[in-house]
Each structure stands twice: as C-alpha cells, then as structure tokens.
C-alpha cells in the first residue's frame, strides 16, 4: 500500500467528567490518505479493541457533514486545518507522513467532557429550547409567493439556518462565546414573517439562556466565522446585538 502514512497521535483521554484527563500517545500506522479523520480513529480503535484496551470515545453520526455531531480540536483548530470542513469530511491527505497530531475535546465550561473527546453540548439544546421556535401554527406548505418576502432576505434566513450546531464557534473562540450559534438561530426567525410574533422575546430568552450556560462574551475576534464548517457569518452577531438591544431599549412591551 504505497502512499500510506504513519502518524503519531496525542489523544486526550479522560474517564469521565469527575476525573482528570491526560494525553496518551498512539501510533496510527498504514493510514490511507483517502480515509476521513474519523475513519483513521476507527482504525486506531479497532487496534485498541483487539488489544483489549478502552477505545477512544469521540462523537459522530452522519459522517457526511450535515449533522454537526463530530467535533475534535485537531492541532490547535476545531475540525482540523481546513476551512468549511467538519471532522468527518476532513481527509488524511490534509496531513503528511510522520506528522504528530494533537487531538483535544472542545474546551468550554459549558461543554463538559463526557468521556475522552466527547463533550456534552446539551447547552445548545437548552438555548434552542429557550426561544428557537415559533408558537404560531404555520400551516401546511403555502402557495408560492403567498408570503411576501424578498429573495435576498429569505436567502439570508436560509444561510443562517444552515448552522448545524456543532459548537466549533465556541471551541475556536478565545472566550468560549456561543454568539455565532445563537445569532444564527435568532436570525433564521428574525428575518422571516413567521418569526415576527416572538421576535423580541426570543432574542432576550436565548441570550439569557446563553449567559446562564456560562458561555463567554463576544469580543469580535472573528475566530468563529473563520472556523465555522458551514460559513455562518459574523453579520449574524451584529444582527443579534441589534435584536437584543432593540428589544431591551425600544420594545418596552416585550421586555420580560
């Protein structure tokens, strides 16, 4: 098998949230450059299982870049070295033979480690449950053009809605801020007619939950945007600020 790589992995191993973790070094030999990063870990794990050792725990589900379940901080960056890529879509050809790869879990107080590289991201679920929905019955599929909305606006809402909730924005941010995620979730409703009823309550409720979960505050470094696998833009954060301040300062009847 020519072209295959031998790699050294430094993997964060941690039994559970109560214990302290540490880095353990593994060799990953004969790795094909066409494998995904997760497949490479599968190979290492099979080896560990064969030896009777505890396999490395990491999150994954769809393995096609749409669910947001895979995580991993690889050589200092969430989802590894490539832009607009989830870890399941990261291929080993992005690394070279003999390379040492350091693999860490997302680091944030709001994302406690469950085991090894798997972290608990239910904080995102709770933020979503705090306001990321509409209470009005939107009915069945409406006739085309029956809801007046400019294409540019619906496109923007759609782009915001592509957030897969992976948490790379939090992982990349030096403050562990969840603003990019929350702003995407607020924007997808704030821009659409169906989201108007609860528009200002939503911004307040979701920001409130975000703060309660212990995420840091945004200092506009832009690291989140650069590392987001689906390209959620910083302009969403400006929109969230706008929504929130408008709610608090100008929508007396909606402040709660």
């Amino acid at each position: 098998m020519s072209g295959n790589m031998n790699l050294t992995l430094k993997v964060w191993r941690q039994k559970n949230n109560k214990t302290r973790g540490k880095f353990v070094t593994y060799n990953a030999n004969g790795i094909s450059p066409d494998m995904s990063f997760l497949e490479m870990l599968d190979v290492v794990n099979e080896d560990l299982v064969r030896k009777g050792e505890d396999p490395i725990h990491f999150d994954h589900d769809c393995r096609e870049g749409i669910c947001g379940m895979c995580s991993l901080h690889i050589n200092g960056r969430p989802h590894g070295p490539n832009q607009l890529t989830t870890t399941c879509q990261l291929h080993m050809r992005s690394f070279h033979d003999g390379q040492t790869i350091v693999i860490e879990p997302w680091r944030a107080a709001a994302f406690p480690v469950i085991k090894d590289l798997a972290v608990d991201r239910t904080a995102f679920d709770r933020i979503q449950q705090a306001g990321g929905y509409v209470n009005v019955n939107t009915g069945g599929v409406p006739d085309a053009n029956s809801i007046p909305i400019p294409k540019a606006v619906s496109d923007e809402a759609f782009e915001s809605a592509t957030c897969i909730g992976c948490g790379a924005c939090v992982a990349a941010c030096k403050n562990s801020s969840a603003m990019l995620f929350v702003s995407a979730k607020v924007s997808q409703y704030a821009l659409l007619p169906q989201g108007q009823t609860e528009r200002y309550s939503r911004a307040q409720a979701m920001v409130n939950q975000m703060d309660a979960e212990g995420f840091g505050s945004c200092t506009n470094t832009g690291a989140c945007e650069a590392e987001c696998p689906v390209g959620i833009k910083l302009t969403n954060i400006a929109r969230l600020n706008r929504e929130y301040f408008t709610a608090k300062l100008f929508k007396e009847e909606e402040v709660h």
Partner: peptide
C-alpha cells in the same frame, strides 16, 4: 471569559483564525 474555559487547549492556533 476566562471562567468560560477553565481548562485550556494544549495546542491553540489562534493565528489561523483571528
């Protein structure tokens, strides 16, 4: 913000994204 990340990264390549 420091409290929001009690355990830091061993490798953190901030220069790659900001």
């Amino acid at each position: 913000n420091k409290k929001a990340r009690p355990i830091g990264y061993a490798v953190y390549r901030g220069s790659a994204n900001s």
